Computed example of a mutant assay.
Amino acid sequence: MDLFEALHTRRSIRAFTPEPVSEADCETVLRAAMAAPSAGNAQPWHFVVITDRAVLDAIPAIHAHAAMVTGAPMAIAVAAELSLEKYPGFGYWTLDCSAAVENLMLAARGLGLGTVWCGIYPRPERMEGLGKLLQFPEGVTAHALVVIGHPAQEFRRVDRFKPERIHRNVW
């Protein structure tokens, strides 16, 4: 798929078929995620691939807006190992993980897979809940959950371009 087609047709998909995501597709999206830029090239991210139905079904108790995960074959939790930050204390890990999430979702779109980004950070109850559910070690913190699968709804192009939001040189 053309890059710009993927960019402009990527949408939050909340309905999935029961078909599993192949290991090859899973690796492809994870490779794309790990190709993201990061502050000082620290790459503080870790990814937990979740396919266990009991674990997927437990997620809405942590994040009520992630209920679509119960109908998806897979989710990927994105977390940061804070000791890997090159510039600790500035919170760049959140930017690094966000870039990884976007790459992951665009790669999934390119493969014809659907995704929805469920925000975990900065909500402490979600961060702690997901970390506990997935047994994160000390020093690893949850950032996001990407629900992924074969879409049971259409991708559609939406023009979000707003020229009035563009400023040149000064506001």
Rank of each mutant, 00 (worst) to 15 (best):
W45H: 06
V69Q: 00
T51Y: 05
R14H: 12
A58M: 01
P60M: 08
A64L: 15
R53I: 04
A67G: 10
V21R: 02
L56K: 07
T70F: 02
E19N: 14
S38Y: 09
A54K: 14
P37N: 03
I59T: 09
V69C: 07
P18E: 13
A66Q: 05
G71N: 10
V48C: 15
M34R: 12
P60K: 13
A42C: 15
A36R: 02
P44F: 06
A32N: 04
A32Y: 00
M34E: 04
A32M: 05
T70K: 15
A58I: 01
V69D: 01
P37E: 11
A42Q: 15
P60T: 07
A42T: 14
I50V: 15
T28D: 08
Q43K: 15
S38K: 04
N41R: 13
D57C: 10
V55Q: 11
M68G: 01
P20D: 05
A33K: 00
A66S: 13
P37W: 06
A32L: 00
S22H: 07
I50G: 01
M68P: 02
A58P: 08
V69R: 01
A33V: 00
V48M: 10
P44T: 01
A32R: 00
I50E: 10
A72C: 14
V69I: 13
T51G: 07
P20W: 05
T70D: 01
T70Q: 13
H63V: 11
R53Q: 07
F16H: 05
H65Y: 14
H63F: 07
I59C: 10
I50K: 00
W45C: 09
P60V: 08
S22W: 11
P44E: 10
Q43M: 14
F16S: 02
A66F: 10
S22E: 09
A35M: 12
I50R: 07
F47K: 07
E27D: 11
D25I: 01
Q43T: 12
D57M: 05
P20A: 11
E19Q: 15
L56T: 06
D25V: 01
L56R: 08
M34K: 03
I59K: 12
R31A: 10
V55G: 06
A72P: 09
A64C: 07
H63W: 08
A42D: 14
E23K: 12
A36P: 13
L30W: 00
A15D: 02
L56A: 08
P18M: 12
E19W: 04
S22C: 09
G71L: 08
A64I: 14
P44V: 13
L30H: 00
E19P: 01
A42W: 04
A24N: 04
L30E: 04
R14G: 06
M34F: 10
A64S: 14
V21M: 09
H46A: 12
R31I: 13
I62Q: 11
E19L: 09
F16V: 05
T51D: 05
M68K: 12
H63R: 14
I62F: 10
H65A: 15
